[in-house]
Amino acid sequence: MAILRVKDVSKRFGGLKALTDVNLSVEENSVHAIIGPNGAGKSTLLNCLVGKLMPDTGSVLFDNNSVLGLEPFQINQMGISRVFQTPEIFGELTVMENMLIPIFAMRDGAFRMHAYETIANEKVVVEQAEAMLEEMNMADKREMHAASLSRGDKRRLEIGMCLSQNPRLLLLDEPTAGMARADTNNTIDLLKQIKEERDITIAIIEHDMHVVFSLAERITVLAQGTPLVEDTPENIRGNPKVREAYLGEAA
């Protein structure tokens, strides 16, 4: 069953057609990669899924509910978590607090005036956060300010924050951009482990072919704002159209 369905989505920026009639469906519990050359419209598509941009036409259904016109926080509350290209975390807060916030958000909703409670007394939430830090191998860094973490640890923390909410769909926007090979491999291992241990759908936008071919079960190739092909990694690798549009003649 498809958990995310994109139907006939088009988006223009002035004279530029960023997306033209994009149709895409992401199967539940799969890892779906969206690849394409620069300017293919990958980021625009992602922004349409999370409520940052409103497509001109078409519809986006998550679990058969439209997400169009909703604010990012509402879409998150439906069960979609997003990991950013550069890790977006609460730099001035401690690692532990970074982990507490998404769990509070899941429990209390978009806003709650819990001004007279003490964090230390919220035992269940604190335990959940500690377990998640344990899972991410960051328990020893819990009192550190998130801003002082290494790039790889920031990425781990951000993924952990997203996972702590038990999302049904995890969106990753070039999760290994600008990373050293070792960090990239760590991230791939982490994502594989997540996939094995959880019932979760992962949609990933990526430049790095190494990452895409080690993770994805389905791949959609975008070119000039429209899907070129959608297939398994093996078939994509051998597809001459993809080679021409994306990998280049020499590849």
């Binding site: 990012p72 926080f73 978590s81 950013f84 977006e88 807060l93 916030i101 998404p102 978009a110």
Partner: peptide, 16 residues
């Protein structure tokens, strides 16, 4: 304090 630190992350964490 999260508002001060990163509103983007806050919104994408399901908080208004």
């Amino acid at each position: 304090r999260a508002v001060k630190s990163n509103q983007q992350r806050m919104n994408y964490t399901g908080l208004n």
